[in-house]
Design a protein around this nucleic acid. Structure first.
Lengths: 131, 131
DNA sequence: CGGGATCCCATAGGATACTG
DNA sequence: CAGTATCCTATGGGATCCCG
């Protein structure tokens, strides 16, 4: 079975465009996944609307897409309660939780270095219009 | 000066859509920046064509865009040598290099967990078509 | 409440050809 | 060699409305 061969012997190569690791990178690198991981890592489970507000300015359709993709990739577990009104809760799987630290590190980098980036950007733009 | 106020007192908030940290996240989260950081962290300086081959399947226009954006954000330094044929070298700035560890962590996560993600995906898709 | 259905758009990204 | 210049498309993402 191909999957088992992968698990056992496959040598992942980020630099190979055909390597599935790239697919993974692409998913993590979308606009919202990282934020959702962070939110769910902070407190779980959370409900749809809660996430929607927590993430700030995301369209419902897009949140659904994001959550579905994460569920598909085994990062999130979705639980539906047969109630009226409906209640749906999301939480990280162990796999999803293992992403917490790496993503948090990126987040911290962003918070720590925004100012520098902004300055660099300003300098670059001024130099550009300068000559 | 606004920038200094930022540096000193601004409270970054990843969850606020208007916060510049989000801009930073968006840039890092594009398709190529992370790979370029990794390549340059591994060995610097590198030339355009070298990066182009190293990164695997990137169009020259897109590599230029990526590199320019990174230069603008203060992540890479671009050096042009007045020779024929032209030689241009790219290397990480200290700021860019500070991204190395967080990004490498994400890369390692991807390599370590591709198989799990792929399996989860397969399971999900089968369950989907099942009912 | 938690989305599905629709419609729409910007733009990141790609292919190819050309040039100082 | 290190890019520009064009042209093109795929799609991530957004706005709105509706439904069980």
């Amino acid at each position: 079975m191909v999957i088992n061969q992968l698990t056992a012997a496959y040598e992942p190569d980020l630099y190979n465009p055909d390597c599935p690791t790239r697919v993974v990178l692409d998913r993590i690198g979308d606009r919202w996944t990282a934020l959702v991981v962070l939110l769910l890592a902070e407190r779980s489970p959370r409900r749809f609307t809660e996430l929607r507000q927590g993430v700030g300015g995301i369209a419902p359709k897009v949140l659904t897409q994001t959550l579905r993709a994460m569920e598909r990739d085994g990062l999130v577990k979705r639980t539906v309660y047969a109630e009226v009104p409906p209640r749906v809760e999301y939480e990280l799987t162990p796999l999803g939780d293992s992403l917490r630290r790496p993503i948090a590190a990126i987040g911290r980098w962003a918070e720590r270095h925004v100012a520098e980036v902004l300055e660099a950007r300003k300098r670059f733009d001024e130099a550009q219009s300068g000559d």
